[in-house]
Simulated scan of single mutants.
Amino acid sequence: MQLDPQGMAPEDLSHAGSVVDKSIEYMIGQNIAPISVASALLGGALGLMARSMKDPAIANVLRSALHSVESGELEELRQSSPPTAGNG
């Protein structure tokens, strides 16, 4: 796994994000509730992290996610995307 030129993210992060986005679109298209999609993705992500990372690294990822919520970053995202069932 190689890091980007700034040393911040793996070079394949964009590709992985695109695959996840397509999976989300598919599940929503199958009328799976957004909370179920999100819960399944979060559970899968935590399971993958548990198998491939040490607890301090997982805690750092979760702290970063919490910081995004607390800083209003997700609110900005919410306002720039079309509404879906369950995010209103």
Rank of each mutant, 00 (worst) to 15 (best):
M1Y: 05
L3K: 15
L3P: 12
L3S: 12
D4P: 04
Q6W: 01
G7Y: 00
G7N: 06
M8C: 06
M8T: 03
A9F: 11
A9R: 10
P10Q: 07
P10E: 15
P10A: 08
P10N: 10
P10L: 05
E11H: 03
S14E: 15
H15M: 09
A16K: 07
S18G: 13
V19S: 03
V20G: 01
K22L: 08
S23D: 05
S23P: 03
S23V: 09
I24Q: 01
I24H: 00
Y26H: 14
Y26A: 11
M27N: 13
I28T: 11
I28P: 11
I28G: 09
I28V: 12
I28L: 15
I28R: 14
Q30I: 00
Q30L: 04
Q30Y: 07
Q30D: 14
I32E: 11
I32V: 14
I32Y: 11
P34F: 07
S36L: 08
S36C: 07
V37H: 08
V37K: 01
A38V: 11
A40G: 06
A40M: 05
A40V: 04
G43T: 08
A45K: 05
A45T: 10
A45N: 02
G47Q: 08
L48F: 08
L48D: 09
M49V: 01
A50F: 02
A50Y: 05
R51M: 03
S52D: 09
S52Q: 10
M53G: 02
K54H: 06
D55L: 12
D55S: 04
D55M: 10
D55C: 01
P56K: 00
P56M: 02
I58R: 05
A59Y: 00
V61T: 12
L62T: 02
R63V: 14
R63W: 01
R63Q: 12
R63L: 14
S64T: 12
S64W: 03
L66M: 10
L66G: 05
H67K: 07
S68V: 09
V69L: 14
V69H: 09
E70N: 10
E70C: 03
G72V: 06
E73L: 08
E73K: 13
L74H: 06
E75F: 04
E76R: 05
E76M: 08
R78L: 13
R78P: 07
R78N: 15
R78G: 11
Q79K: 14
P82G: 05
P83A: 11
P83W: 05
T84Q: 15
T84P: 00
T84L: 15
A85I: 14
G88N: 13
